[in-house]
Design a protein around this nucleic acid. Structure first.
Lengths: 182, 182
DNA sequence: TGAATATATGACCGAACGGTCAAAAACTGT
DNA sequence: ACAGTTTTTGACCGTTCGGTCATATATTCA
């Protein structure tokens, strides 16, 4: 589902790839929609695991640098993969957001969770004077998430890391730091 | 294709909606892929028409305000529609970008065209001192496009105009204007 | 070990998929 | 009016879609 998209991934193929017969799939999931929801949850789990690996890294004292490390790791990942697939939350938001309310709600929820997770180091960085404090940490974090999703979309359109690097330069190094440091 | 997505929109339904028999479709398009490409072109045509309606509006002397007018019109549109469908270029970038090279290239092309079109008023606004000039107009415009696509994605996930308004507040009113005006 | 329960199988369902094609209808230029 | 060309039709092609179900195989507990 992540690399073909929800509709293009057939249940038969999914079951076969899992080494399970067709019917076996339906003993675990009530429907394909059901799997879609489970896939969103699973993806979010992994995303938050990778996120906290960097945000909670005790070796890096600067919260702003922890943020940078996370996105640098994501960029390295996407570069290694050849700029495919992107973020499944974003993909599902566009492919299913208008037609599957359960999926949409979960995607919305995880986006907000992600923003809340990013708001922590941003808030700490504000306290340390590393990030502008004329705006709340959560609104800033929401904008970071949105800009990152846009960058991933542009990455897939251009098959290039340039949009991701522009995200770092514009959103993290410029906008987030604010006028104070420019 | 715009509201169901490429894969979920069947050729039979498309032909029926067009008031044409199944085979009639294939006398106009070699394949469904072919239509996909044509759809991208058509969408881009309309997008640029709407864009230039505002960017070339002689009643508004300020280039920065012309930019604002365009995005305000888009926000009103999406609000009226109920935050569905979003931008077809973005949708296709995510749904087909990895698997249809012709579609991907066209989407990339139109994103760049869009950035170039937005770069004009930005450049003019720089000359007028309305926009920061420590960065080139085209890189700024590319970032605006990317951030806008991210905002549209978030809009569809949240079914709310909030991400679009955040785009205006953060990207246009803050980042673009720069430190000088804050 | 054996009855009861849960899970896996894969042939099968009707429907829809993208695509084809001989025949019919609609145009074209003379 | 008519031959020649282009376009449209809709039945039809094989394939795949999401989903079902009688049957068989594991698992569980006594």
């Amino acid at each position: 589902m992540h690399d073909r998209g929800y509709h293009a991934a057939g249940v038969t193929d999914i079951a076969a790839d899992a080494g399970v017969a067709k019917g076996g799939f339906y003993s675990q999931f009530a429907s394909k929609d059901d799997l879609g929801v489970a896939v969103v949850d699973k993806f979010a789990d992994r995303m938050f695991a990778a996120l906290h690996e960097h945000l909670d890294d005790p070796r890096e004292p600067s919260p702003l640098r922890r943020l940078h490390r996370y996105f640098a790791a994501r960029i390295a990942h996407h570069e290694a993969q050849g700029f495919v697939r992107g973020c499944l939350l974003g993909n599902f938001a566009l492919e299913l957001g208008d037609h599957s309310e359960p999926v949409r709600q979960r995607v919305e929820h995880y986006f907000e969770e992600l923003a809340r997770a990013l708001a922590e180091p941003i808030r700490a960085a504000q306290a340390a004077g590393e990030v502008r404090d004329d705006r709340g940490a959560l609104p800033l974090a929401r904008f970071v998430v949105t800009a990152w999703e846009g960058a991933l979309l542009a990455m897939r359109a251009r098959k290039s890391a340039a949009p991701l690097r522009e995200f770092v330069a514009m959103t993290l190094d410029d906008f987030l730091v604010g006028a104070a440091r420019r």
